[in-house]
Design a binder for these strands. Structure first.
Lengths: 200, 200
DNA sequence: ACCTGAACACCGTTCAAGT
DNA sequence: ACCTGAACACCGTTCAAGT
C-alpha cells in the first residue's frame, strides 16, 4: 500500500522516490512542530512542489496517518521477532517487547503527536498493521499466562490502551515525566500477583 | 485571577459576565470540536463579538489554558475534601479521589483535548492549582504508605504522569477504550504487594 | 503520468469606530 | 472601560499550465 498511488496502480520510479522523500521529511517536520507543521515547509524540505505532496496525500492528516501506519508496522515486526524467540521466560519476552516498542515511540515524536493529538481519521490506514500487532500480542500474552507469570484477566486489547497512555506521558506533558518508570509500573500491574519479580 | 482583566484590575460587571459566558461557551465548543473549534463560533455562542473574546484572552490557547486551570482547581478541591475525610482506610480514600477526578475528566472533553493535544503554553496558568493538588496528593500518599497499603516507592509526581496517561485512553484513542479498567490496573500497581485487595 | 507554484478560501488576530 | 465586526495575514488546498 505504501508503493501504490491513490488509484492503486504501481508508481513511476520518480514518483516513488518523491513519495519516500515526502514521508521522510514529514517524519522530521512533524516531530519538530507537531500538528503545526506547514505543508509548504514539508514540500520545501522534501524538495518538491506543494502540489506533489497533495498528489500523494489528499490531506495533511493523511500524511500523519501514513507515519502512524509505518510505525505500527514496525511494532508488529518487533512483536513477530519476540514471538519467534525460541527460549526466554514468556513474561520477560513480553516485557522486553513493550520496552523496545516504547523506546521506538519515545524517539518518534511524529507518531506521538498523531496518537495523542488527532481523531479517528488517522487510525483508519493503520488498522491493518494494528490488527497484526494485536494478534501476535495475544499469543505472547497467552504464553505468559500459561506460564503463570501474568494476571489471567489481561487481554490483548488492554495493551493499546496502556501504550496509548504511556505515549501521552512521553509527549508534551509539560513536565519531563519519567516514562520508563511509568512503563515499569504498568508491567508490575500486569504480572501475576504471586509471581517472582526480576532483580530490581 | 479568574476575575481580573489582563491588566490585573477588577472587571466591570458587564465585562465579568461576558468573560464567564465566553468560558462556558468554550467548554462546550472545545468539547465538541477540540482544537478545531473556531474563534468566530466561540464568540457567536457566547453572544459577543470576536474582539471581546480577544479582549479577555490574548490567544485561542489562552482560552484552553483557562479551562485547564479551572479543572485543576476542581481536582485540588476534591483532593482537599478527601484529605479532610475523618475516617476511611487511607488507600481507599486515595483511590476514591482518583476515581472521582477521573470521572470528572471523562465528562470534560475540553480538558482532555488541552491535556493531550497541546504543548507547554497551556500549562503555565494552571501551575498554581497543579501545585496545590500535588501538595495534598503527597499527604494522601504518605498516609496510605504509613498504613502499609501503598508501595513505598510511589511519589506524588507519579500521579500527574499516570492521570495524563489515563486521559489519553479516555480521549480520541480511535477505539472506545475502557478507561475504568485502565484506572483499576493503575491502582493495583500502586497498592503494596502484600496488601489485601478489596472485594473485586 | 506526474510536477509546479500562483491563486483561492478559510480562520486566527487586529484595530478603527462606536457606546 | 469595554464592545463590535470589517479588514488583514497566514496557511491548507486546488488547478491551470508545464514536462
Amino acid at each position: 500500500m505504501s508503493e501504490t498511488s491513490l488509484s492503486g496502480r504501481p508508481l513511476r520510479a520518480d514518483a516513488r522516490r518523491n513519495r519516500e522523500r515526502i514521508v521522510e521529511a514529514a517524519r522530521e517536520l512533524f516531530a519538530e512542530c507537531g500538528r503545526d507543521a506547514q505543508m509548504d515547509d514539508l514540500a520545501a524540505r522534501a524538495g518538491v512542489g506543494v502540489g506533489t505532496v497533495y498528489r500523494h496525500f489528499p490531506t495533511k492528516e493523511a500524511v500523519m496517518a501514513e507515519l502512524l501506519r509505518q510505525r505500527f508496522a514496525s511494532f508488529a515486526d518487533n512483536a513477530r521477532e519476540a514471538l519467534e524467540d525460541p527460549d526466554g521466560e514468556p513474561f520477560e519476552v513480553f516485557a522486553a517487547l513493550l520496552r523496545r516498542n516504547a523506546e521506538l515511540m519515545a524517539r518518534d515524536a511524529a507518531t506521538r503527536h498523531a496518537l495523542t493529538g488527532m481523531g479517528q481519521t488517522v487510525w483508519g490506514p493503520a488498522a491493518g498493521e494494528r490488527e497484526r500487532l494485536l494478534g501476535i500480542t495475544a499469543e505472547l500474552i497467552a504464553r505468559a499466562q500459561r506460564a503463570g507469570a501474568m494476571r489471567t484477566d489481561v487481554t490483548a486489547s488492554d495493551l493499546p490502551m496502556l501504550m496509548c497512555g504511556l505515549s501521552a506521558t512521553m509527549g508534551s506533558g509539560g513536565a519531563a515525566f519519567d516514562w520508563r518508570r511509568h512503563l515499569e509500573m504498568l508491567l508490575d500491574a500486569l504480572r501475576a500477583p504471586g509471581a517472582p519479580r526480576p532483580s530490581a
